[in-house]
Structure formats: C-alpha cells, structure tokens
Simulated scan of single mutants.
Amino acid sequence: MILTIVEGFDRIEKKLDRMNRLKDCLDGDTLLDNCDLANLLGVTQRTLARYREKGLIRYYHMDKNGKNYYRSSEIQEFLKQRGKKKE
C-alpha cells in the first residue's frame, strides 16, 4: 500500500514538473513545449499543429527528443498579431 502511495506521488510530481516547466533560452527568453503552450492558449495540441503547418507560429524541433518548443516572446508577438483587427 505504501508503494502505491509513493508511486502516486511520483506521478503527481512529474505532472507538476511538466506544468511548471519553463526552460531558459537565449537572451533570458523561455521555452514552452506543446503541452505548456496548449494549456496557456486554451487550445488542443492538434490546433497547435495546424498553427505550425500554416506557419502562424514559429517553433523549434529538437531531434534529440522529438519535441517542439516555442519561445515565449514569439508567442507573445503571435498573440498581439492575432488580436489586431483588420481594417
């Protein structure tokens, strides 16, 4: 029973680490992974894939682990552009 509780805490700890993870990048910027960005924007990971396919957001693909990362400053710029109304 204690082993089950410890395993549960390990799973929770991993989830919290993933949710709170912000990796240092160039110039003090931070990197967000797909999960972080989807949660931040309130969209699905499939929507992020569509944004990438359409070239709406810039991303960095890491061959080592196969993950995509996004610079927070570029996401802020994306949100500013999306918020502008067309005249």
Rank of each mutant, 00 (worst) to 15 (best):
S72W: 11
L32Y: 00
R21Q: 12
Q76G: 08
Y59W: 10
T30H: 14
L40N: 03
E13T: 11
L40K: 14
D24I: 12
E53V: 10
Q76L: 11
R82G: 02
K23C: 03
L37V: 05
Q45G: 13
M62T: 11
G55E: 05
D24L: 14
G66F: 04
L40C: 02
Y60S: 05
T44S: 15
R46I: 12
K64F: 10
M19G: 00
V6Y: 06
G66A: 02
R52E: 13
L79Y: 09
R71Y: 12
G83I: 08
A38R: 00
L56R: 10
G42Q: 02
L16N: 07
L31Y: 14
I12K: 07
Y60K: 04
L37C: 06
I12L: 13
K67N: 08
K23D: 08
G83E: 12
Y60Q: 09
D24A: 06
L41D: 02
S72R: 15
R71W: 04
S72L: 15
K15V: 03
K23T: 07
N65V: 06
K23E: 09
D27F: 11
K64A: 13
D33L: 01
G66I: 01
Y60I: 14
Y51M: 14
K15I: 03
R82V: 12
I2L: 14
Y70W: 08
L41V: 01
M62L: 09
S73V: 05
E74D: 15
T44K: 03
M62A: 07
R58H: 10
G83N: 10
T47Q: 14
R52D: 09
N65W: 05
G83H: 07
F78M: 05
H61V: 07
L41Q: 01
L48Q: 05
L32G: 00
L32Q: 00
N65D: 15
Q45P: 00
L26Y: 09
E13Q: 08
